[in-house]
Design a protein around this nucleic acid. Sequence first.
DNA 1: AGTTGAGTTGACTGATCGCTCAAGTCGGTC
DNA 2: GACCGACTTGAGCGATCAGTCAACTCAACT
Lengths: 221, 221
Amino acid sequence: MITQGRRSPPDTRMRLVLTAMQLFWEKGYGSTSVADVLKAARVNSGSLYHFFPGKQDLLLAVLDLYLGGIREMLLEPAWHGVEDPVERIFALLARYRRSLTDTECTYGCPIGSLALELHEPDLPVRERLAANFTAWIAAIEGCLEDAADRLPADCNRRELAAFVLTTMEGGVMQARTYRRIESFDGAVHQLRAYFDRLLREARPDSGPQAGSTHHRRKQQR
Amino acid sequence: MITQGRRSPPDTRMRLVLTAMQLFWEKGYGSTSVADVLKAARVNSGSLYHFFPGKQDLLLAVLDLYLGGIREMLLEPAWHGVEDPVERIFALLARYRRSLTDTECTYGCPIGSLALELHEPDLPVRERLAANFTAWIAAIEGCLEDAADRLPADCNRRELAAFVLTTMEGGVMQARTYRRIESFDGAVHQLRAYFDRLLREARPDSGPQAGSTHHRRKQQR
DNA sequence: AGTTGAGTTGACTGATCGCTCAAGTCGGTC
DNA sequence: GACCGACTTGAGCGATCAGTCAACTCAACT
């Protein structure tokens, strides 16, 4: 029987996680069988269950890897050469756009796909999905804080940051469904229009924000 | 005598579709087995395969039922007693909010969940998902056309209508992930802030114009 | 009364699912 | 060289999957 040399301990484990990350992104969690992962990673089933109690723990490892890599795998590449905090927000969205165009609008945000695929996920899974969202939102919120003096004083930055995520995820969903990048572009275009108005408001022609609102009346209904 | 009279209503088919609609909403398509549907509908497998070639065709029937029921099952209940076209948009969003709160933020938009769950859906499935989105967007676009004179002249109403869907789907996704309705409310709040600014812009010089809210839109599809 | 066929029944199939485990194979340590 | 234990191997487990099928029921029509 032909046997190959043993691999260094973390090798097999990491290859399993990376392979699972790729397959979960392409096919989803439910549609990816353990056999798929084993075949793609060239690992036997016993080895997988030596490192992971079960399939779900493989998912947890994938989600942890996403969370740990948000900064250097996602934000830093997207923000390279972009200093303006507002433009950084749209540079991040442009990165997701690239992910769509590179795959003919079939693969978008892996976290969002998993979040909607798993209808009743166990607590540890949902915690990690939420942690990924929270870290993403926090990054955007950081941009908004950097641009705080260009935004209205009463701007709820955390809520606005979450709204950027909302736009990205909703735009990705439509682009994937229609297989047309224009759906994603339209969502980003509307978000840009919203930001333009927020930024325009915050620099009134004279001095700092005066009082509460410089709008005369509430909207008619 | 007309021989066309079908025999007693074979409600088996409809019961299967309605049962599948419920289960796909609760558990997703992939996690719902044919046996689940059969058990819940109290139907034997042979009967199912008498009406449907396979599981996917059951999904197609569900999606067709959603599409056909958009007006009377979704829009009309949401818009009952609401005349203002802009408020109708937010009334529709409020209906999805109710769907979340009624289920402790576990079930949101069934179309959106399916759209992200099915990573490489066959053409007929994707066509029907897209058709549902398109009909939803068209309904919102109708509202925007009714309120056209209150919106900026250069407003891309179709794109803005799609952005409302983007907000709803993205908001639902976050609310489900966090199990907190505040995530959905935050997204709607930001959309409202955007609309406030659009509506404010379109009134360079106010003054109640006669019959401005009396504008009837053309028949929507 | 006889014929027809849409609709129903439920045991059954082969494939695939996540997962187990006894039997190894090594490098490290003494 | 002996031993230990982390890691690997792959056949195989029971459960479940979507789907099949021959036999059956029974109302409608001749």
